[in-house]
Design a protein around this nucleic acid. Structure first.
Lengths: 354, 354
DNA sequence: CTGTTAGCGCATTCAT
DNA sequence: ATGAATGCGCTAACAG
């Protein structure tokens, strides 16, 4: 057996060892100790069937004795895969993404993948930087929960150059995996609920128009209103969080006559409306009915508990992983999965005031 | 110039190229195209000063033209560093960790590091598996927001074998970086506030005892009560989330005489109490005052808005990164930083009922 | 079933 | 200021 090219001495650690030597024991050490070749150790590590049971046992024993841990960096350099997935979210404080993350994490673990979450904010450049690092770090694939309507980054990755899945936010012209809920239908359900309660002055507070799902929700809302012979009114918030909801509420509460019902493109915005209404002394739902979207745990904490369109968040996470791993393994045509939303009626909606 | 050992042909992609070729352009291609050696390209990439300006420019131009992106896996194999940090959290749905994550992310970015978040739950085995993968993947260091009181994993890493920082949760016997808030003081502030309001029947709902910070908070609570001549009572919740708070509330609301004030070890538990009280028709704060801990955004959403002990969450994240990077670079003695909490008085506390 | 031989893409001596 | 040579730790043919 040829000695390790590095010609490294027997394992007495050098006196000048750097402070943090992460993984001193290599496959060579194991091979030498166990009296086998590199290849055999590698086979044991990778569960190759072509190893005699007794050999396998001996090698495994040696690995344990030496405290050997395979270096995934070296492995990745050869194999080009890391069994690591990344989930990109715009705002980790939004519980919608937390729920999605649980689903992703679950499904990834079930398939023996690990998953890391990256909080990239709304900053396009930061997002691009993360994607670059993740790719170059050998992350096998990325789940984007952050795509804008015409996201150039996603488009550039979409031509089969790197496996990705879009989550809950679409980029219509990209040929990539996506998992969405039927946003139009969800919004339609919300509007329908309010119309049935007798509301005639309805407003929608949408997210910024660059987010595709928000556009879809506007469509669904508009469709329901037009079907009822009403003209849809939309206030576009300048963000997606509670603060944005508070700001958008200024316009809402200033309208004359004041709307009796508002449909918000997500739960965070809706909570902003609830807070603004409370601050202005507007009673919910007596004077103002509020509907959210997402069905996050926050909706139940809110006061009053929100009526909201529920997305199957964890399920979406699971499906996203499924699609991504399929791409990873087959590289086939991207799939598009649309899940069904449903309406959860809380205490934030009631009959239109007389 | 010796050709690339791989003897790879000029860059016409092979017809049988695998579906996802992540990074076809290598440093060899750049070197050949620019008419320089590997080493020079490497120097340009790493901003070595020993490159003539004109050469640097030419190489950079070539890199751009070819769309070259340095392979961090290969680089990491040599350098043993990735400029990647990981933040381990037990429950990404708890907004406390979301806030911390923002701080971590900020500070990391400022130092030109990237940060990934891993949601490892309460599962010790899962956590260990993640740590193993992260280390072996070459992650430079880990911030643990998950350590239990006697966390063996942390202890095993703590002997200077791998750079870590503990966040908001201590492992007293581990010699590692930590950033905490003064939990005893925070709890003391909460109890003091309630005592001043005239409450005499106070109960604390704590997290499971294996969490060190929860023990500290119990201490602070007990100290305040004893100082007032009262005997502290503690209900230990079986978790840290809203559901656990709801369950713990059963015991709380069943006590005779019923306590008039409750201090919860975190905001999630407190929200669980608020919900249980609402369901039982117990008015807050008229019949029951509730104090939380953390100062998450949730506290303000709650109804009524929570009185809570505020931890400087983002700052904690920033400090955690700072300590970690210091360890990375100097490998010196671990530091311990304790930050000050303060009390935010919301609407969930009021005078003790007559 | 096992060993030998080549690199994966890059950083890093040592020359020059 | 630049180039040639070497190997980081591992997997992947290809022999045997």
């Amino acid at each position: 057996m040829k000695p390790h090219p590095g010609g490294r001495n027997p394992k007495e650690p050098a006196a000048d060892a750097r402070k943090f030597i992460v993984m001193p024991v290599t496959i060579y050490d194991v091979a030498r100790e166990a009296g086998v070749s590199l290849a055999t150790v590698s086979r044991v590590i990778n569960n190759s069937p072509y190893v005699k049971e007794s050999t396998r046992r001996r090698v495994q024993e040696t690995m344990e004795r030496l405290g050997y841990e395979p270096n995934l960096v070296a492995s990745a350099l050869m194999t080009k895969r890391t069994r690591l997935l990344a989930l990109l979210v715009p705002d980790i404080s939004n519980p919608f993404f937390a729920e999605v993350a649980w689903g992703v994490e679950d499904a990834a673990a079930a398939q023996n993948y690990n998953c890391v979450i990256c909080n990239v904010g709304d900053d396009t450049r930061k997002q691009a930087a993360y994607v670059s690092v993740l790719r170059r770090k050998g992350i096998d694939g990325i789940i984007f929960a952050t795509a804008a309507h015409d996201d150039r980054l996603v488009l550039s990755l979409g031509k089969g150059r790197y496996p990705i899945t879009l989550m809950a936010r679409d980029v219509p012209s990209a040929e990539v995996n996506r998992v969405l809920t039927d946003d139009q239908k969800g919004a339609f359900l919300a509007a329908e609920h309010l119309l049935r309660l007798g509301h005639r002055r309805l407003v929608m507070i949408s997210e910024p128009a660059r987010i595709h799902s928000s556009i879809e929700r506007q469509r669904g809302f508009a469709a329901a209103l037009q079907q009822a012979g009403l003209t849809p009114a939309v206030i576009e918030a300048d963000g997606s969080d509670i603060q944005a909801g508070l700001r958008a509420s200024q316009a809402l509460l200033a309208m004359h006559p004041r709307p009796t019902a508002v449909f918000c493109a997500n739960d965070m915005l809706a909570i902003g409306v609830l807070q603004a209404a409370a601050a202005a002394g507007v009673r919910v739902p007596a004077e103002l009915s509020v509907v959210g979207f997402d069905g996050t745990p926050l909706a139940q904490i809110a006061s009053p508990p929100l009526t909201t369109v529920v997305q199957p968040m964890r399920e979406m996470g699971r499906v996203a992983v499924q699609l991504l791993i399929e791409s990873l393994q087959n590289g086939g045509t991207p799939r598009r999965v649309v899940l069904e939303p449903h309406l959860h009626v809380g205490a934030s909606t009631g009959p239109a005031p007389a």
